[in-house]
């Protein structure tokens, strides 16, 4: 897994590449936690180049969303496709996150 990050003062874009599984999900978890603790109130998580994500990764996203909501912030996902999208649907997670159809739309929603 590789995480590319770009950010302004209020907004962070994390581009997650490769596979997120039980051996590396803690890295994503820590990255998201530090962003929220550092005062970031809007996070876009771009999963366009994600190969797959196991339930360990999904738990990271659920924790991150709770942390963001606790600080009145916003977490927006984009780039969902293939197996990742299928697993979001399987677990019933789609309705629990703000999911944008494109990165531009995600940026607009995160900044709103």
């Amino acid at each position: 897994m590789e995480i590319l990050e770009s950010r302004t003062k209020e907004l962070a874009i994390l581009h997650v590449i490769g596979r997120v599984n039980s051996s590396n999900a803690f890295e994503l978890d820590e990255r998201l936690r530090l962003l929220v603790q550092g005062g970031c109130r809007a996070i876009v998580l771009d999963l366009d180049r994600l190969d797959h994500m196991t339930s360990a990764g999904f738990r990271c996203l659920l924790r991150a969303e709770k942390q963001v909501l606790d600080t009145a912030g916003r977490l927006v996902l984009c780039g969902l496709h293939g197996l990742t999208l299928e697993l979001f649907e399987t677990a019933g997670y789609l309705e629990m996150f703000v999911v944008a159809k494109s990165r531009d739309e995600a940026l607009r929603q995160a900044a709103a």
Binding site: R19, N21, S22, S23, D51, H52, M53, T54, S55, A56, G82, L83, L87
Partner: peptide, 20 residues
């Protein structure tokens, strides 16, 4: 590749269940 990814996810879930 899609089948590989499915098997890798399934194996990860099984192994993390055993380990954890």
């Amino acid at each position: 590749e899609d089948l590989t990814a499915r098997l890798q996810v399934a194996l990860d879930e099984v192994l993390s269940n055993i380990v954890n």
